[in-house]
Amino acid sequence: MSVDIGIDLGTASVLVYVKGKGVILKEPSVVAFDRDSNIIRAIGEEARLMLGRTPGNVVAIRPLRHGVISDYTVTEKMIKYFVQKAMGKRSFKKPRISICVPSGVTEVERKAVEEATYAAGARDVKLIEEPVAAAIGAGIDISKPCGTLLVDIGGGTTDVAVISLGGTVVSASLKLAGDDFDEAIVRYMKKKHNLLIGERTAEDIKIKIGTTYQMMEDEVMEVKGRNLVTGLPKVVTISSSETEQALRETTGQIVESIMNVLERTPPELSADILERGIVLTGGGAMLRGLEELIEERTGINTMTADEPMQVVAIGTGQYVEFMSGQKEY
């Protein structure tokens, strides 16, 4: 039995889709590495818990930066680990793997992903652009000559693309996404409260009270970190309206990118987009107020796909079936 696997190789997390079973694995793309002995200590969730908490010889690293491989050997081992975990030990035949890449990657970066996947034990590798995979996963029929504007906000990259007839017509890829939201919160806490916090705490703030649009009621949260003046631990209470200030610049750049793509869209497809709206996917799409912000600035109805974090993985897995279903004359 040959197995078809779809992998969403993200900067923040890796999702594995197996044909007939759906998304069976979702783990952070973090690897804990022992510098002294050159061995990998942990991969995935176990390694994420070590971020910022390791002794000198153990480093928890993210082998992908902005959707691109920054550490080839570690990425290869990580893909291998997730493929084996998804397939179980009993499989004899090498799987066919379709894997997604951001729409703006260079030929060299594509090659690196392809080679790492072959090295991890794939029999055949297909690369898919992230917005196309996201559109298939969101249940949009992309084979029709009808335009759809898709915004995929991941951990390291944001892809904005107009898709029609199974391909990308106009696209833009921004090296700015979920991780940059976290960094913006870290910077704001330093500047405004003299408090130094880690990436994980910033992510907690983003998930619990983060917003990009003024809310009716302010939500508050206690944040623990290190006081930059005294160097001692300190607790600060922050509100959701403060996160809106912290994220304003970053989300503004994403909206600018959407406007830029809309300006370059052929008029016929612009009419389709006005009718069908903008679809948001990816983990970053779950940030509150993003729909309202984009809608206010563009005047186009904006909605988030169901299960935004899983759509790229689902679409990557279904891409092979989609391609085989295309008629040839």
Rank of each mutant, 00 (worst) to 15 (best):
I7M: 04
D8V: 02
G10R: 03
T11D: 03
T11L: 08
A12N: 10
A12T: 12
S13H: 14
V14A: 07
Y17V: 10
Y17M: 07
V18K: 08
K19H: 11
G20Q: 04
G20L: 01
K21E: 04
K21M: 01
V23Y: 04
I24E: 00
L25Y: 01
K26V: 00
P28G: 06
V30Y: 01
D34Q: 02
R35N: 12
D36V: 15
S37R: 11
S37Q: 09
S37Y: 08
N38D: 15
A42Q: 06
E45K: 14
E45W: 00
E45T: 11
E46S: 14
A47S: 05
L49N: 00
L49S: 03
L51Q: 06
R53V: 02
T54W: 02
P55T: 09
G56S: 15
G56N: 14
V58R: 01
V59Q: 09
A60H: 08
R62Q: 12
P63C: 13
L64F: 12
L64H: 08
L64W: 11
H66S: 14
H66W: 06
V68T: 12
V68H: 01
V68Q: 06
I69E: 00
S70W: 05
Y72G: 02
T73H: 11
T73R: 10
T73V: 15
V74L: 13
T75I: 11
T75V: 07
K77S: 14
K77L: 09
M78C: 07
I79Y: 09
Y81Q: 09
V83H: 07
V83W: 11
Q84S: 09
Q84K: 10
Q84P: 04
K85Q: 14
K85N: 10
A86H: 05
A86Q: 03
G88M: 08
G88D: 09
K93V: 12
K93M: 12
K94V: 06
R96S: 05
R96E: 06
R96A: 05
R96T: 06
S98D: 11
I99R: 01
I99K: 02
C100Q: 11
C100H: 05
V101Y: 07
G104N: 02
V105E: 03
V105Y: 04
V108I: 07
V108T: 09
R110C: 12
A112R: 11
A112S: 08
E114L: 14
E115M: 13
E115W: 10
E115Q: 14
E115C: 07
A116Y: 03
A116H: 09
T117Y: 04
T117D: 04
